[in-house]
């Protein structure tokens, strides 16, 4: 609880979950063991998930640590095309898990989407997202 408050109330540029320094909040888990245990067991700390070519390694762990809480997901498709997709199996895995967790997405933002990427992420038939409140799509031109 206190760690979450510290993260939320702290200067965004240093500690904000969605702040400029993307992985700064992960450092909270590296202060000492007690903080780590508390942080890992706080699902809300892990509910803001950013998936991109640069940080895909975190996606799986974050999705697991977020447990059953609602998600705020950002996916950046830069460098993620059909041609290169096979090279980044972790992204495939993360996106598959995300697709499976679409039902608890509260907010979903897709950046630099191309037809191929979108088609693979949302193949027909329908995907049901009953909790989705905010949806943003920015198509790469």
């Amino acid at each position: 609880m206190y760690i979450k408050d510290a993260v939320t109330l702290g200067p965004k540029e240093k500690y904000g979950i969605n702040g400029a320094s993307r992985h700064a909040w992960i450092k909270l888990t590296q202060v000492f063991r007690l903080w780590r245990d508390i942080a890992i067991c706080a699902p809300n700390l892990w509910s803001g998930i950013r998936i991109s070519k640069r940080n895909y390694k975190w996606a799986n762990a974050m999705l697991q640590r977020s447990q059953h809480t609602f998600l705020n997901v950002h996916v950046n498709f830069v460098g993620f095309t059909r041609r290169t997709r096979g090279k980044y199996k972790d992204i495939d895995t993360a996106l598959s898990i995300l697709e499976a967790n679409l039902g608890r997405c509260k907010a979903l933002s897709l950046y630099n989407v191309r037809s191929a990427g979108f088609g693979e992420f949302f193949p027909p038939p329908n995907h049901y997202a009953p909790q989705l409140h905010t949806f943003r799509i920015f198509v790469a031109i």
Partner: peptide, 25 residues
């Protein structure tokens, strides 16, 4: 125009309140 089209066939949503759509249909 990009071939991406957002429709009910793409995503089934019932609680959607805020939608941002840039350069797609």
């Amino acid at each position: 125009m990009n071939s991406i089209v957002l429709s009910e066939n793409t995503l089934n949503v019932s609680a959607l309140r805020r939608l941002t759509l840039i350069a797609s249909e």
